[in-house]
Design a protein around this nucleic acid. Structure first.
Lengths: 221, 221
DNA sequence: TCGCACCTGGACCCATGGGTGGAGGTCCAG
DNA sequence: CTGGACCTCCACCCATGGGTCCAGGTGCGA
């Protein structure tokens, strides 16, 4: 087991990559940092689990593509069996699936292999401290999957909509007919139609269906 | 900081928080770090923009709740007008809306105010290097919102829709009127209406607006 | 072969939506 | 205090949408 090691002098790190040509230099470079101690180098996920079980490990620097057990699965098991050990993914792959899978599995960082030594070290320290470091590209992709990219802010909605018009548009986006909108806002259906006409003109909305799409795209929920 | 980081120049940082009791000590603490130079302290977003316009700034440490111009808006403008300046959000609020809004606006980091000095400094350095640092809680929330979104699409639709009906629904989701749908599918408007009636009954769709929402929710694009 | 699902269409009805042109009200800044 | 922005509402018009009923054609499997 690993006791609550609140940052003893040195961070214990395991480097996991199936390619020795990557793994060894990486371990050597990290060991040069005086607050990092590379306690093991693993060639697959199984070796990682064994290393973590053998000694308290603060951070695992994890490749994704590995034989026997890949980085995703190893990360998942680690976050279950050794939640005190943080995982930082270091891989050449930055596609949406890999990112989501790794982070969902419990990774506390995600770097691409064009990250520099400083970047990696910083990510290790951050992960050990409970923070999470992502490469810029990774964060961008993560965000893009969260929100259907805000295309261009100017394409969103014109700024000159009155509060009432925004309110009406929101309700249109919820699929309500004019009568229900009127009841909800305690105004008459005629007024609703007026607002609709005005906001349609302002926002260049053709019809109700278009309005629903624009409302959803603008995040009016 | 036991790092032989040979920073040729110190990182220029702007601290933005409307409460002087937070802003001043924070600036002082950061200035103690030898590679950080606090070039300005701002009480609102407008002051931040002015400071960044006046001098090259590497990182802005940004509160969200500020008068005049809040941190979200300031971040959005910064990422447009000064993309070389990174924004790290430091706030007490860690709700989903704030996180998404800030990161969508271009923030490269998001810390809560129980982050320690080392955490903040690390985030500043990471942001200046193009990385992104998130508090653990923040990343968890971000991930949670991701996983509730891109599920397997079309699960919200009944499976007994015919291919033609799906096609029609897709076009409805694009905001097309029946006539355009008819032209696009090389069928008559009457047929389009028939399909619409059938699929509305099957999928329990009330009207066109509802259909647009369902189509978008089902990923029919 | 028969039935059935599906696509195709027409005719009709009427509710809703979208557009126009007004009108009166409050509230606030110039 | 006057103008303008905003919210409120009415009357009227007509295009579109949504629903119903019906019917011919195709293709496929029981």
């Amino acid at each position: 087991m690993s006791e609550p090691t609140e940052n003893p002098q040195r961070l214990t790190v395991v480097v996991a990559d199936d390619q020795a040509a990557v793994r060894e230099p990486l371990a050597a470079v990290l060991a040069m940092s005086e607050d990092i101690e590379v306690v093991a180098a693993a060639a697959d996920g199984a070796e990682v689990l064994a290393a973590v079980a053998a000694a308290a490990v603060d951070v695992v620097l994890m490749d994704l593509r590995m034989p026997v057990m890949d980085g995703i699965e190893a990360t998942r098991r680690l976050s279950e069996e050794h939640p005190e050990t943080a995982v930082v993914v270091l891989t050449t792959f930055a596609d949406d699936d890999s990112i989501l899978a790794a982070l969902s599995a419990g990774a506390r960082g995600y770097l691409t292999k064009n990250a520099g030594r400083q970047d990696i070290i910083r990510a290790i320290r951050a992960a050990a401290a409970g923070q999470s470091v992502l490469d810029r590209e990774v964060q961008d992709r993560l965000l893009a999957t969260v929100r259907t990219r805000p295309q261009t802010p100017e394409q969103s909605l014109p700024a000159d909509l009155t509060p009432r018009e925004r309110e009406v548009l929101t309700l249109i986006g919820q699929g309500l007919p004019n009568r229900a909108i009127a009841q909800q806002l305690f105004i008459s259906e005629a007024t609703v139609k007026t607002h609709i006409n005005n906001l349609f003109a302002k926002a260049d909305i053709r019809d109700r269906a278009d309005a629903v799409r624009r409302a959803l795209a603008a995040g009016l929920a």
